[in-house]
Design a protein around this nucleic acid. Structure first.
Lengths: 342, 342
DNA sequence: CTGAAAGCGCTAACAT
DNA sequence: ATGTTAGCGCTTTCAG
């Protein structure tokens, strides 16, 4: 079996210089017509493919970006990945996936991949900088990093996000509008900014409507399905259980619904439930989940767009790019059974 | 801002040769102790990271593998990705994701990435070779490719798969064991080998039990949720509708269940449903889905293991690696309402 | 055990 | 418009 052809092989075969072949093959528009076609033909006849390592070494670019998430196993990220991938492909970039699982070692390892030339830029969706001590401070300024989905305050990187607080408030107002008064919230992990925002939205909507949030009406979860069950149980065991629950993500919402059903309660007849995220299959279940839909593919696309602009040396505005959410009113919300005011 | 340090910088600073630094940093065991530590210290003081393009160019390896699927948007692949990623990381490899969407251009493009040095090997889960004419024939023998999940007959690549036919038969036997006689099947796209196998398993189990498969009891789908609905409707409109349905994947099974409920039928009271794949959330729904569980993470891990062995030059056995499935009996199957034997 | 030298395959100045 | 030359940063013979 014969060795893979290099530029030199084509050049010799055609009696031109390697430089000309390189120029012809990379569409610089600097090669005249008789030569151009001959080179292209020869390249495809030899089934030539440029060696990316050599090219990358020379051009000091990898033509790859890194997308880093907390948990690749979560389908939520897939739609975003699709958006990123599409935008990346269109610009000739590949996408590397990084998975941190909240492990500080991995968090910094992916940052290191930027520095060692594995990737040219990074889309960071972990909601934090590497937590290794002193690491964040030592990061060079102007690193081509876009923070998406979650926010990292004070990081100085451009952000693509949604207004979690406003979206949460809208969801709660929907419940209030249906006539609910006793509305509870199952929150995400509160160290995280995103969870805080969603809880703040809940509180704001309640306050604006003059509704109290009794003790025990705010439960603190972790975005896992099982926890949705447990915390829902806790709410049902309250002396005055809520007639509606705003849950900080869909998985916990499913858990909550499961628990309600097991307790013989009807959703939405006895208790209404609103989720957040509009994950895969949310619309397809029984009943379909009322939830806040994030424009996930668009988040991915925009994040990649910003990143490409950074890579082309553009300075980016400090203001975060905020994308619109949409409350999808589906089958898990209805007016409370007995509309006794207060 | 000062330039990124190179090996040469460390060498000069320490008065040793670049070669020694390289050897020290790559743990060859060829550098003696006073020097070794000095080099390591200097490297970490300078925050040195080797340039991967240069290294890859020199070593002719990318230390990356490519995992190619039909549709990144499908959560099904996530667990596999997790398995691949874990095994890859452990061996020092990164994972590149490829998404073909059944587009022939992309199918071949990812193969090309192998050839241009983007990746050293590939885990192919698309169930087919690039369909561009003549392409498959021209592929060099012994390419480091492992086919996972689906099979590509005659491709000559090592396979990691499950026994789709046996698993399907087991699922159908479960229904028969419950007393069902009128059992229908909603199949996947039949050009695909995987769908054929699952259908064959259905047929075999029925034949073995001496049960007929009446006209219209085999519907041909495409793995999409909406299609599950439509085809379930078609089954219900039959003069003698089935009392149980074996569906070729979970998404269509959810669609079918949705349709059954909309028609006022109880699952599993009136109709039992079995799915295939055990996708995300299948266990968490109401009722939880009875389905065939594939060892997804294990498929990923094993595929990566085989690939690593190919990359180290080992010749691999032609026999496919077949992993065990497990029928998860959950809440969507029960004996038929009126157990009138035929 | 360490150093000198070569070169992986490509592209970018510079020259013509 | 094309050729010449150099070099990206690393690893790996080959010497010593």
């Amino acid at each position: 079996m014969t060795r893979r052809p290099r530029i030199k092989d084509i050049a010799e075969r055609l009696g031109v210089s390697p430089a000309t072949v390189s120029r012809a093959l990379s569409d610089t528009g600097l090669v005249a017509e008789p030569t151009l076609s001959r080179i292209r033909d020869a390249a495809s006849a030899l089934d030539y493919r440029p060696n990316v390592s050599a090219r990358n070494l020379r051009t000091r670019r990898a033509m790859a970006v890194l997308m880093v998430v907390r948990d690749v196993g979560n389908p939520f990220y897939l739609e975003i990945l699709k958006g990123v991938e599409a935008a990346a492909r269109a610009a000739g970039y590949s996408v590397l996936m990084g998975n941190t699982e909240n492990d500080p070692d991995r968090e910094r390892q992916y940052f290191d991949m930027l520095r060692d030339g594995h990737a040219d830029g990074m889309i960071l969706m972990t909601g934090k900088l590497p937590s290794a001590p002193g690491y964040a401070e030592r990061l060079p300024k102007g690193l081509p990093v876009v923070v998406a989905l979650e926010m990292i305050e004070g990081s100085g990187f451009p952000h693509v996000q949604i207004d979690n607080e406003a979206a949460a408030a809208e969801a709660v107002r929907h419940l209030i509008g249906l006539g609910h008064r006793r509305i509870a919230h199952i929150a995400g992990p509160l160290p995280e900014v995103m969870s805080q925002r969603r809880r703040d939205g809940f509180r704001r909507a309640m306050a604006e409507a003059g509704l109290a949030v009794p003790d025990g009406y705010e439960q603190r979860g972790d975005y896992l399905l099982q926890t949705g069950r447990t915390l829902c149980r806790a709410l049902l065991d309250l002396p005055e259980p809520p007639t509606a629950i705003f849950v900080a993500n869909d998985e916990m919402a499913f858990g909550a619904i499961h628990e309600l059903r097991r307790s013989g309660l009807d959703v939405p007849g006895d208790v209404s439930v609103v989720g957040f995220d509009d994950i895969y299959l949310s619309a397809a279940l029984f009943p379909p989940l009322t939830t806040v839909s994030q424009p996930r593919a668009e988040i991915g696309r925009q994040a990649m767009r910003l990143l490409l602009r950074m890579l082309s040396g553009e300075a980016l505005p400090a203001r975060p790019l905020v994308l619109a959410t949409e409350l999808k009113v589906r089958g898990t919300t209805a007016p409370p059974r007995a509309t006794v005011s207060n």
